[in-house]
Nucleic acid binder design. Structure first.
Lengths: 150, 150
DNA sequence: ACTTTTTATCTCATAGGTGAGAATATGTTA
DNA sequence: TAACATATTCTCACCTATGAGATAAAAAGT
């Protein structure tokens, strides 16, 4: 029986989900070793690499809801890794930025995190990785561009 | 400044997550149109294509906790799409299976679901899809095989 | 100026899922 | 048989994130 385009598309969706889950699990496990959820780690990582960000920027970058951004920054503030700062010109807006503690934490754990992710995707070699990244980028961009209805 | 293997690995992790999220969002939106969460839809789909399954099999296939499997089957039972049935030989175990209603629901909505997923991954053509699927399968298998610690 | 619309964050009720442990059944071993 | 280990589902307390609405500020329109 002939395999249709739809069949191969569904296969792709399945392996995409499995691959993502497997990689995310490594990230989750490492974050958990330091008492952080994946969302919390993602906030720290974003601030670590971009400096300070508006909550709304965090929200869009991490693909969480507005309530979610508030929640994550609250939790990290309570533990002293992040602090809020009022925006100098727009009084609606607030920055989130790493505290010294937060920066030290990331100095300590980020290299290992990166190493583990590199190991997690180590099943494909350098050249394959480049091809895979290109195809996934195109796939993602296309899927994001479609209206979900239709 | 030279891009290291680690850099390309991190790029891959990022686009993998974005691609997966974008595709999953289409699935989520379609399931929601029929009042189903993604987890609920996944249960129906599994039972639709595999016939009846033990709750434990569902749990492993859907990557949810034992509590999660119970919860999902509970909700679908309450709406009459799924029913539990005792296992004939192992009295610890229970099957979940679609009711006639559940089967009719899936007859009605599955083709459209498949069509939407095919559209969502339509950014890459047939040949690319085959390559992508192969690479992702290898990536996922490798990542699943690694102990999360180390 | 005034009104309206948009933008940014926060609050809160709730959905959805986790994971430890209970309850029960089965399999294994002294 | 008794004791123990393992397997399966279910219960329950809890965690994380959502989304609608509140609040407030800024921007745009009249």
């Amino acid at each position: 029986m002939a395999r249709t385009d739809t069949d191969t598309a569904l296969d792709l969706v399945v392996v995409l989900a499995r691959a993502h889950n497997a990689v995310a699990e490594h990230a989750r496990a490492h974050a958990a070793e330091h008492g952080l959820s994946l969302g919390e780690f993602a906030v720290l990582e974003a601030l670590y690499h971009k400096g300070e960000m508006l909550l709304g920027e965090l929200q869009r970058k991490l693909l969480v809801s507005s309530g979610g951004a508030t929640y994550l920054v609250d939790r990290l503030s309570a533990r002293g890794f992040v602090e809020r700062r009022d925006h100098p010109e727009d009084r609606r807006a607030r920055h989130a930025m790493l505290t010294r503690q937060g920066r030290e934490l990331m100095d300590r754990i980020w290299p290992e995190h990166a190493r583990r992710l590199a190991r997690a995707v180590g099943g494909v070699d350098h050249a394959e990785r480049a091809a895979l990244t290109g195809l996934l980028r195109r796939l993602g961009t296309h899927a994001e561009g479609l209206e979900s209805g239709k």
